[in-house]
């Protein structure tokens, strides 16, 4: 009855927010839009280009990322770097994620006992 497609809304709901955390971690080393998209995919985060690009600008506006244009290469690219407050946000989110992992583990653990 319940194919994988039926679960998609729940999966999306659960993944929402993880892209922000992943970006904050990945951009501790400067990165640009498409390169970041590939990095995310490589680490197992399925992000769409049309959500990632606006997200980067939003995080920059909120002060969690800084940006700089690099015109040295053939194609000028906008490079983003996680700011100090971005790093603090990443720490908080990571702690929360770890707590959630523990909480979920305690649920499934309790059931198998």
């Amino acid at each position: 009855m319940n194919g994988r497609d039926d679960f998609d809304p729940q999966l999306l709901e659960l993944r929402r927010g993880t892209i922000v955390l992943a970006c904050l971690h990945l951009l501790r080393h400067a990165g640009y839009g498409y390169g970041l998209l590939e990095d995310l995919a490589r680490h197992g985060f399925a992000a769409d280009a049309n959500t990632l690009y606006p997200l980067l600008r939003r995080l920059e506006k909120q002060g969690y990322l800084t940006s700089e244009w690099n015109t040295e290469e053939t194609r000028p690219r906008k490079f983003y770097l996680t700011s100090a407050s971005g790093l603090r946000l990443a720490d908080t989110l990571t702690t929360e994620w770890a707590a959630l992992t523990g909480a979920i583990a305690s649920l499934t653990h309790g059931r198998t006992e």
Binding site: Y32, G33, Y34, A49, Y53, P76, K78
Partner: peptide, 17 residues
Amino acid sequence: ADVRAELSASIADDIEA
């Protein structure tokens, strides 16, 4: 201008890949 430049770079990167 900023979005235009960034978006065209991103699209060009994607096409190239």
